[in-house]
């Protein structure tokens, strides 16, 4: 098992250096002077230009610059935002909990609804239940989620007036972030109604972000279940006289879940991409909106740093998924 983990880690390092190379080259591929781009200024005296060029190390050979960049990454230095003037990593740390909270809620909803839907569809294969569930899953899978979000806003916020349109909590409440998760912080603050407000702000973004993972998980669970239900050991379990619930829920589902775990892990990339759109629609102050704003405001240090951090998160999660998969499915370790 250790060898398996080490092998995966060994692949991860060159990939990460490649990712860093892309983030590094990005700034140099942009049309325009990199010094101007990184400092965010339009007019600059020659001396100041030379000074910044020296400070940023742009007067060094390109290979030296890259090694220097890797060194800075290792020390957590990803440059400073042109807009907020704060270190990129600091801004990221402040905004990431918002995206994490939304993503966790979305993936929980997707798992809690997707797995049962897939199991039911598989057990009732070919029936109208199966067709309805899988039809709904395909619609979810094909959904332009930015439009879906707008529709939900029109109906639930505009027409029914049930849910708020944007933000994480009503402006009436203010408390210092402890965990960064609004649901937990609002409870800790002890303010009446704060939790309800945070919860109501989460509902629509969660539905929007959960839509595609939910559809993917339901489809994957169904096909994994169908494969397992045809196996000999399931027939044996049935012929022993076990209740259908026990056969499906205990014997079959345990093995069917192995590929589903990988699918769930792979949704992290989908969630982060979805966060870009969901956070933009709902003005959710997370890293997705942060990246879109940075692209529009030409805040290139943020775009560069954010790109690297998001790719790093996806790579680490994929590694964890791989290792988990190795644990639950010993066949893969060989």
């Amino acid at each position: 098992m250790l060898r398996f983990i080490l092998g995966r880690l060994a692949i991860l390092i060159p990939t990460f250096i490649g990712v860093a190379l892309i983030a590094f080259s990005f700034i140099r591929l942009l049309p325009g002077d990199p010094v101007m781009l990184m400092s965010g200024e339009r007019v600059m005296s020659e001396e100041k230009h030379a000074q910044i060029m020296h400070d940023l190390g742009y007067d060094q050979p390109i290979a030296v610059q890259f090694v220097d960049y890797l060194g800075k990454i290792a020390h957590g230095d990803l440059g400073r935002s042109v807009v907020t003037k704060k270190p990129v990593l600091e801004d990221f740390k402040a905004l990431f909990p918002a995206t994490l909270e939304l993503s966790i809620c979305a993936i929980i909803v997707a798992i809690l609804l997707g797995i049962p839907a897939g199991v039911i569809a598989a057990v009732r294969r070919g029936s109208w239940v199966d067709q309805t569930l899988m039809g709904a899953a395909l619609v979810g899978y094909s959904m332009p989620i930015f439009w879906w979000g707008l529709l939900l806003i029109i109906f639930f916020s505009g027409f029914l007036g049930w849910t708020p349109v944007s933000g994480r909590i009503s402006l009436m409440y203010f408390f210092k972030p402890v965990t960064g998760f609004m649901l937990i912080d609002s409870l800790l603050s002890g303010q009446k109604g704060a939790f309800a407000s945070a919860f109501s702000h989460l509902i629509l973004p969660t539905i929007v972000l959960a839509t595609i993972p939910l559809a993917v998980i339901a489809r994957q669970t169904r096909s994994a279940m169908l494969e397992v239900l045809g196996e000999d050991y399931v027939r044996t379990a049935r012929s022993k006289g076990l209740s259908p619930f026990r056969v499906v829920g205990f014997h079959a589902l345990r093995n069917a879940l192995i590929p589903v775990v990988t699918t769930i892990g792979l949704q992290v990339g989908v969630l982060l991409a979805g966060a870009i759109l969901t956070e933009t629609i709902f003005s959710w102050p997370g890293i997705g909106k942060w990246m879109v704003d940075a692209v529009f405001k030409r805040d290139y240090p943020v775009v560069q740093g954010g790109l690297l951090l998001i790719a790093a998160i996806i790579m680490i999660v994929n590694l964890i998924v791989d290792i988990t998969y190795g644990f639950i499915n010993p066949r893969i370790r060989r």
Partner: peptide, 17 residues
């Protein structure tokens, strides 16, 4: 490895950048 690197980014984010 190059393909792994491209896959490490969420597609929409990479396209956006």
């Amino acid at each position: 490895r190059i393909m792994d690197i491209i896959l490490a980014f969420p597609s929409l984010l990479l396209a956006l950048v």
